[in-house]
Structure formats: C-alpha cells, structure tokens
Design a protein around this nucleic acid. Structure first.
Length: 407
DNA sequence: TCTGGGGTCCTAGGACCC
DNA sequence: TCTGGGGTCCTAGGACCC
C-alpha cells in the first residue's frame, strides 16, 4: 500500500449531484425545493432530486407507481439539450484550471491536476474547493469532488460525501479510507464480482486491496488486477482528454406493451429501430458494416442475429427484405417478446458519396427526394405502421405515410 | 428493483492454418 | 483417415458503467 503523503499523481473526479433533476430546478424555479422526478416520457424515473430521494424514491422506479404513492412529487419530461448545455458549462469551468479534462459522461468528469499547486499557489484541497465553488455559484448546481492519486480512488472519494462533498485522499490515508468502503462500491466491481469476492471473505475495499498480487491474478481477470493497482495509488487509467464524438456501436431499442409474438408487429418495430439507428449513424457520417437485430423474450432472454454488410451502407432500405428473413429465423412462435431492437457496428467514415443503393436508378432518385421528410419524422415506412391487432392503422397511414410505390 | 435505454471492454473458445 | 502441437483471428456473450 502507498505510504507517503507525497503526490506522484493527482486526479480529480467531479460528479454533479442529482444532475438531471437539479438542472430542472435551476431552469424552472417553481421546482426549487420540491421533490422532482425526471423521466416522465420514458415511464421510469431517470433521476430524482434530493427532496424526492428523501421520500424514498429511487432511479428505475415506475412513474405510475410514483404517482400513486407520492402524489406530492413533481414529475417532468427529460430535456437532453438543456443537460448538454449545462454539461458544457461545467466542463469549461473545469478546463479553466487544466486542459487535461476527461468528459466521462454528461454529469461526470476527471481532471489531471498534478503540478497545479505551485502555479495556482493552492493546495489540492483548495483547488478542489475553488472548482466546486466556481461551478456552484455560476450555475446554481452542487457537485461532489474527490481528489486522490488515481481515477479509482478519486471516484470513491467524490461519492463518499455526496451531495456537495469535497474529499481528498492522500497516500497515507488510503488504508483508513478504503476500510470504510464496501467492496461492491468499487468502480468496476459489479454485482457478480462483489458476491464472488464476498465468498472469498473480501468485504471491504481494503480487504480487496490488501490481497497480494498472486491472489488477485489467481482468482480474477485482468481488469480487476488493474483496479487493485489503482486502489494502491498506482495510476493505471490515464485521463483521456479527447472529445468523444465517435462510437463503436449504435443501439436503438424499446419495450412495448402488450408483449407479442406476432411477426408483422415485431418486424415493423425492428424496422423502425433500424431506421432510427441508421439516422444516428448518418449524423456521425458513418457507413455501417454490420448490424444485429434482437428480440427480448418475456423472461428476459435475448434472441439475436448478426448480419454483415458488404459493401458498407449509409441507408438501410436495400436490406429490408433481408432483415425480414433474418428476423423470421429467430422468431419462435412458442415465445412471447417484450422488446425489440437493433444495433449497428463496424463503422467507417463516409468519405466518398455512396455509389448506388439500388439497381434501379429511378427508385434511388425518388427515395433520396423523400428521405429528408422521413428524417424529420414527417413520414414513416408502411411496414412500421402495423397496429397491435396486426392491421394497418389506416388513420396513421393517411396522416403520415407516403407509400413508396406511389411516388 | 420483477427489470428502461445506450454504451464499452474483456475473454473463452471455435475456426482455420501450418 | 487418423494423429500432434501451436499460432492467429474472430465472434458471442458476459460484466460493467451511466
């Protein structure tokens, strides 16, 4: 274990408290001081203000349950554009102190603050307090800050005194700090690993860190050896200061009600997810080389099929029929499904204009003409319009659909 | 917690080759 | 057709995160 008060590395972790709910309280002052739950449009609580948490509401709870049991709670839709705006402001404040900032998620980030004590003429604790104060006074949000030798330690430190906490863990304090942390709270240790470790007699983060290297390597995989080193104050995870605008995969999926095994309904849902996912891919200017379609059964098992696409494609119409066949191969009439989805992989920057989607040049021209309307959700594909009873929803079609065949 | 949606990374084991 | 041993590449699925 690390045994000195010196700082061979210094990492700050910053975590906004109840971010989505707090932003709503800043933007809509009538919500100030009230119990607020965000996530109305999704049907489950995405975030809860501290006032709501006090009443016993947690993330993931169904909105209908919350309405029934807590009529005093204000339930609002999420607004990701506003969250993104506040997120940018938080990170730009952090960047005033150092350019070595990693945007880990919309409400959470890391910064490498080593070497800043002299130029700022402050200790690490003062630096943390300055950043925290700057954000809180200019944005009206509270954040929790942790500072230690590594990302893993800093993250534990920031969550230790939430909300609005500031916690500094230097090398000499690591042991006394980790003894207070249950092993399942370590970043990267999930439910499965936690219960496995508990069977080995490891209950606290200190129990974990106190094992010798052989023990860790014998019982666990590489990621846990890295976590173990991080908890010792040995910096393994670097700060990644590059803006994240590239993806390895893009997923669109949704649960529906009632669950069904009706092929037409499943197919129409898969197709609309396919269109949505490709829309997101085009926004990033990606050609797509592989797709996976999947179904989730009523008892939470997955049925999926991966399909390679050569050449890689930018628009998905040309593969609708193939998707239909592949979906047939995974739908089992004896099973009932509660959700569908699709995931795209194997991307490539779309440098050159795609050659041709269709053997029929005229059809391609027509499709390109109407596609902007589709992207603005003004039109949809006919196949996406089957209703629950396996009939076309005629009203919806009249309102929305331009059947391709009539163009 | 009777279970929402969108991601990342790692590893075991099969396929294939020499 | 059966027999080794060893390497690489790829894929599915698990585990984890917010």
């Amino acid at each position: 274990m690390f045994q000195t008060r010196s700082w061979p590395s210094a990492i700050l972790h910053l975590d906004a408290d109840a971010f989505f709910a707090s932003v709503m309280q800043v933007v809509y002052p009538r919500l100030k001081g009230k119990p607020v739950v965000v996530g109305k449009e999704r049907g489950i609580a995405t975030a809860c203000s501290y006032e709501a948490k006090k009443l016993g509401v947690k993330r993931g709870l169904r909105i209908t349950e919350i309405k029934k049991n807590f009529p005093q709670i204000v339930i609002v839709d999420s607004d990701y554009e506003i969250y993104a705006l506040f997120s940018q402001k938080i990170f730009s404040i952090l960047r005033r102190f150092t350019p070595l900032v990693e945007e880990y998620s919309v409400d959470e980030g890391f910064a490498d603050i080593k070497g800043l004590r002299r130029p700022l003429n402050m200790g690490y604790e003062e630096i943390g307090a300055a950043i925290k104060n700057e954000i809180e006074t200019s944005l009206g949000l509270t954040v929790s800050v942790g500072i230690s030798l590594t990302k893993s330690l800093a993250k534990l430190a920031s969550s230790y005194k939430k909300p609005s906490g500031l916690m500094v863990v230097d090398g000499l304090m690591i042991g006394e700090f980790l003894v207070k942390i249950p092993v399942e709270e370590i970043w990267g240790v999930g439910e499965n690993t936690a219960s496995y470790l508990q069977k080995l007699g490891i209950k606290t983060a200190l129990d974990f860190a106190s094992q010798n290297e052989e023990f860790i390597k014998k019982h666990l995989t590489k990621p846990f050896f890295e976590i173990w080193q991080e908890l010792h104050g040995e910096k393994i995870y670097e700060i990644n200061p590059y803006q994240k605008n590239n993806f390895r995969s893009i997923t669109r999926s949704a649960t529906f009600y009632p669950p069904t095994n009706n092929f037409n309904i499943l197919f129409s849902r898969v197709l609309s997810h396919l269109e949505e996912a490709f829309f997101a891919a085009r926004r990033a200017d990606y050609l797509v080389g592989e797709i996976e379609i999947f179904l989730k059964t009523q008892d939470f098992r997955y049925r999926s099929k991966k399909i390679k696409l050569r050449p890689k494609i930018f628009y998905p119409f040309s593969i609708h029929q193939m998707i239909k066949q592949e979906l047939r191969s995974i739908v089992n009439q004896r099973e009932i499904y509660r959700a569908t989805g699709c995931c795209l992989f194997d991307f490539e920057e779309n440098h050159n204009e795609q050659i041709s989607l269709f053997s029929d040049q005229k059809l391609e021209t027509k499709v390109k003409k109407i596609y902007p309307f589709y992207e603005e959700k003004k039109i949809d594909f006919g196949t996406a319009l089957y209703d629950k009873n396996n009939r076309f929803d005629n009203k919806k079609i009249k309102k929305l659909a331009i059947p391709l065949i009539n163009l």
